[in-house]
Design a protein around this nucleic acid. Structure first.
Lengths: 220, 220, 220, 220
DNA sequence: TATGAATGAGAATTCATTCAT
DNA sequence: TATGAATGAATTCTCATTCAT
């Protein structure tokens, strides 16, 4: 975040005004929605201000400019998903269950946070120019890969999983199987002439993904 | 296309008629690159004109406005990939080979046409608003799904493939496994701290995808 | 000038519209007045457009941005004064008369073109950043210095003028004696408690300058 | 000054009172530099605050607004140069020496205080609107003119100087000969293709000015 | 078919200034 | 005395689009 706040000790006199931390968070949330809906190029600072019910000028006061605001939004999104991942505790589950749980989490998170998909798309459209300069590597690098490696290893030792599975490839595959379906559902629904977002269709997709992933990992 | 050229039926000896077609094609190609690079919101009509080395006014003459130009670009892209798919002739191959071939084609096409991925992203960011109104269903609906269904059926009858595989789900999975990796490679490379686009990494990804898909379809 | 015009051969259908050359000239004149009145920082693009009775956008179309517009104005001003100097023909006059004539010209030109003084001030405030990059050295470098050198030499040979006078120093002195009085007349009038711009005061200043310059050059 | 400090009469043992005066002086110095660098229109209150390492709000507390701040800066500048002039004691010198000394002082002061030139330019660009309303006539009106009148009279009586020299004209000429050269040195250096600010060039200019002024005043 | 000139409606950003403490 | 938060009104510049030929 551009301007650190010191609001911690301040007495909360007013519900919304003059609380730097809250203002920044409000702007960030509004910006996230706007960027998710319209992309970086299509987003409007004016609309972000309106969404946040704050003065447009304040956005510049805290975030410098549109690009840096986008970057702040991205960073926040990464932080959010990392936080959600923390709560999974896959290490406690049997390997196959852990894998299934991961698939379900990924699918569920993308479903619940469609803006995350769009933000990633935007970030990649701009060739990752807005990625935090690996400064906060820990913020970006998912600890899930490490976790996944352990699950795979546990499964291999237990004889259920095949060996030689690259956890990074697998992680990307899990994400990709969910991401593509959700991110491109409009196009796909049109192409295939069927609504891919009905509850039934979504349930089927989740089953399919789990089957694909487990079918690949499980020892024939 | 907004203003159809009469070149289809016209004898190809008229210089001017051929120029009209060429101008449109030039604009379309320039627009495709611009949209792919900057998205719909970030694309600039001015730059498209410059890329095409043609007058800006001409774009409006042929394509009405930016939105319709984007739509024309999308349609052209669909047409292109459909054309490429025609040449596959998967029906002549044994089921497993056909599937592998489809995976390779998909991967190769996305690699060779990165703009296709970005265009799809843009189309979906705008909720498919620019999809041709199923008017040209044939243009959109991939005949590959039909083909894929036949491959799966052949494999099932031959005893190699498991039954109950939804060709649409499978098609989306093949695409998703390739698409996500390529479309988001900047983000992913940063997150995982390794360059995912080296020749070796690309080769490994292709292998992985084929393994995943075949691992899922093949009878244990 | 940013965008060359080709209006020479065009038929003058309309008195003002669609004549690139005229539009540019109009903008340039309006900008000159605005910059002269308010300086570079205080000038308003909006006002320039209004002064020119042309669309604001057109200014950017022809001159790119404010800075470049200012530069174009400066270049035009230099061109103008050089043109006026051409008409002096000092070489035909006896040395002392030529010098007196030059003093009168300088004084008269500054009086008639107060904007020239202000523009120079602005250019120097910005450390000459807007000076044409000596590309058009001929445009900037006054041929008057050469002329002045000849006058001084003629005078010296004729025994009227002392030797060893640097024409550049002399030229700067002539200009400075006029410039400072006119450019700072508000401040000076206040400080000295007398209006320095009455016709009488102006006449006296011109006499004084001529006396100073000739007093310096003439052999005691 | 807008909000007079009471520090003049206050005992200097109160830390806070002394700080108030210091803050004002700091702001004034910062503002002077900013105005000198960018002119009135180009100056930024934000930058002034940053330069002063003080809160922006404080500037308004002490100086009301930008215009009045500029005026305060101007007044301070006048006060400074008047103070410097006090120390000259020209009355003690022989007329020609006194005149030479005045030329040297003027040149040296402008060289050492380039911001003074720019501030004067700005003040005049705005038509002297910021000049203190002659309220502090004593602050503005240089006592030097009176002094100069005495020098000229002494010289005339002594037979060295010619008569009929207007001290105001002479004062303006001395200032103008120095001012124009220094204030416009960027433009002039470019026009004449030689660096006018080398130590040698500066020395030559000073000699030239002294020669011109004395050449004018001294009896042939 | 093709093009340079022109424009109105924004859009990002800036700036002096005020609020609340 | 001092400061961070907040704002309304510009201000520069952009953009898709139309005009006139």
């Amino acid at each position: 975040m551009t301007r650190a706040t010191r609001s911690g000790s301040a007495a909360p006199h007013d519900e919304r005004l003059r609380d730097a931390g809250r203002s920044q968070a409000t702007i960030l949330a509004a910006a996230r929605d706007e960027f998710a809906e319209h992309g970086l190029g299509g987003a409007r600072m004016e609309r972000i201000a309106t969404r946040a019910a704050l003065n447009k000028r304040l956005i510049y006061y805290y975030f410098e400019d549109k690009e840096r605001l986008f970057q702040a939004v991205l960073e926040q999104s990464y932080r959010d998903i990392r936080t959600a991942e923390q709560a999974l505790h896959l290490e406690a589950l049997p390997p196959a269950d852990a894998l299934r749980r991961l698939v379900e989490f990924t699918w569920g998170y993308y479903l619940a946070h469609p803006e995350f998909l769009t933000l990633l798309n935007s970030a990649n459209l701009h060739k990752g120019r807005h990625l935090p300069e690996s400064r906060t590597a820990s913020e970006l690098t998912s600890p899930l890969v490490e976790m996944l490696a352990q699950i795979l290893e546990r499964g291999r030792r237990g004889g259920q999983f095949r060996g030689g599975v690259d956890p990074v490839q697998l992680y990307i595959s899990i994400a990709g199987l969910a991401y593509f379906y959700l991110s491109n559902n409009h196009t796909l629904s049109t192409i295939f002439g069927r609504d891919l977002m009905t509850p039934k269709a979504r349930q089927e997709r989740l089953s399919h993904i789990a089957d694909v992933i487990l079918g690949y990992v499980l020892r024939g």
